[in-house]
Every structure is written in structure tokens, then in C-alpha cells.
Amino acid sequence: MTKKEYLDKLARELGSMSYNDVKDILSDIGNHFDESVMAGKTEEEAAAQLGDPSELAAEYKEGMTLPGILARKAEKIQKPKPSEPTAQTVTFVVLITLLVAIPAFFTLFGIVLVMLLIEIAAAAGAIALLCTCWTYGAFLGSGLLLGLTLLFFAIFGFAVCYFSVKYFVFATKWYIRSMKHVWHNGI
């Protein structure tokens, strides 16, 4: 087999590989032929020593295709192996949770709840005041003003409440996640 015949056959056998891979491989094997010839061998001898092109192609495919990629992926997945928490970690998580997280949780929860109640009261007061003014027609100016003020206060308060609840949930989730992380990976 000449160099050309060998490379043609190899290229055919490599068919399923990407163009760049095939080009690279053919260049490597082509250079091998050139080196062999420079070392005083004939192309036939070089081809014989290289081995069957279809076998060579199979070896290339074995090394390059899925198994290799999968093996590397598997390595990556295996790495963050959750280890058993140490006594120090357990103490840390339990203490922080009992002394800081739980009191903070209930305090903040209480604050948000109180805020929400105040807003509801303000809204109810504003609506009642406006209705009263409307029905009786007395103190129309000052009543309307106070009622609208209360109403805006309520709307503003609800917005604050909305964001408070949102960030409260966010913070709680974050806390649980980071404690889990500490639990598995140490402090």
C-alpha cells in the first residue's frame, strides 16, 4: 500500500469524525510516512509497520469519542461527594440556627406581620373615612384630605410589605442553602 492509498483508506474509515480531527490525523500519519521514507524505508514498508488502517481508525475512535468525554464528565460529577459532617460543623450549624437564625426569623416575621396589619388598618380607615365624608357631606375638605393621605400611606405600605415578604423568603431560602452547603462541605 502506498502512502496515498493508506491515507485514503484511513480517511474513509474515520468517516464519522469531524473534519478537523480527520485532517489532523491524516497529517500525523502522513508525516509518519515522510519520516519513514527519510529513514530509508519504502512507503510499503511504512504502511505495513503502521498496521491495518481500519484497525488504526478504530483505535482513534476508541480514544476520541464518547467514552473519553463521558469519563471526564463522570469525574466531574463524582468530585463534590458530600462527606459526613464533622462534629465541629454540626455544632456550628446547630448553634447558629438556634441562637441567631430562629430568633431573627421570628423577629422579622413579627415585624412584617405587624406592618401588614397596620397597612390593612390604614386602608380600612381610609375607606371608612372617605365613605363617611361622602355619605354625610360634612368636613368634606379635611376628611377627604385625611382619607386620601391614609389611602396613599396604605398603598405605599403594601408595596413595602410586598418587597419585605419577597426578600424575607429569599433570605430564608439562602440561609437554608448555605447551611446545607456548610453541612456537606465543612465551614
Binding site: D24, I25, D28, I29, H32, A46, Q49, L50, G51, D52, E55, L56, E59, Y60, E62, G63, M64, G68, R72
Partner: peptide, 16 residues
């Protein structure tokens, strides 16, 4: 061994 065998190995080592 066949001379060719070395090339897939080199290629794999490079990609790793």
C-alpha cells in the same frame, strides 16, 4: 506492536 498504535494514544493524551 504496530507503529500506528502510538498516534491514537498521543492524541488521547493531548486531549486529556
Amino acid at each position: 506492536m504496530s507503529d500506528g498504535t502510538v498516534y491514537p494514544i498521543l492524541r488521547k493524551l493531548a486531549s486529556d
